[in-house]
Amino acid sequence: MEVVKEKIEIEEKVIMKVRNLKKHFEITKGYIKKQSSTVRAVDGLNFDVYEGETLGIVGESGCGKSTTGQLILGLLDATEGNIYFDSKDIAQMSQEELRKARRDLQVIFQDPYSSLNPRMTVEEIIGEPLVVHKIASGEQLRKEVLELIKLVGLGEHQLKRYPHEFSGGQRQRIGIARALALRPKVIVCDEAVSALDVSIQAQILNLLKKLQKELDLTYIFIAHGLPAVRHISTRIGVMYLGRMVELADRDELFVKPLHPYTHALLDSVPIPDPKLRKTHQLIEGEIPNPSNPPSGCHFHPRCSFATERCKQESPEYREILPRHFVACHHPLH
């Protein structure tokens, strides 16, 4: 096991630009007396994705990280804002343009049990993207599928089987092979290892890293499991109730978190070493309901540094150190 020292290559070529991205869901209750409320699932995101990096996005339930992933993939329509990818705006694309753009933009889902069509064989599942985009057929298709399945560590004899004949980890490999079929530039990993057992999770994380190197992939790695995110990401963004509260290079974020929420989040992760057993610096209270977020800084009711200003004024998301963005009136350190 080689330990990676500080060295993170800084690639400055931006492959995707997210600007002021918003997704609001209208929820109406009641038939006679209609009451509608707006859930601001994603409320003004700004970030860049660099070519060849892994951008981790972490957060707890209701923070909007999965919605963000779906917006980037064009699986949801944005309420406002832009997602520039290859100089085109995903948020403004027509259905047909989106379909074409998906060749460069793929996804790996969380639950390997529900993300594969139970009625298709592995060969059909992996080869389908090539068929849909009319890239390969017949013998050529077979060859490509074979190459893909070997790439993810499965064998030819498994091509004729159905998903339910595989274990969770194997299914996730099949899902990865399908995502790779179109040779995309960017892959959104939506909780891609969260549902897997520890030993299998390590296999998949290693595989993802290996593929990234071999195929020059850019990952957007969305997860709630901090250790996995730390392991695979080059930069990490932390979301809370629809907003990005902090974004920085991986080690910087872990060593020197500036936002009190990031700090508390890192501190909440149980560490697998009883000697480091400690009394947590607990964050009080619950995660507020996203349909009714607190005023000002969304985190203020749970924050021990909150002041009057935090209650009223929403903090600006800004680069207060080089490559280190934070949205807080009173950053730590």
Partner: peptide, 12 residues
């Protein structure tokens, strides 16, 4: 095989 939060390795 658990990724460590304080000790990053290249391959798990």
């Amino acid at each position: 095989s658990i990724p460590k939060i304080h000790d990053v390795v290249e391959n798990l």
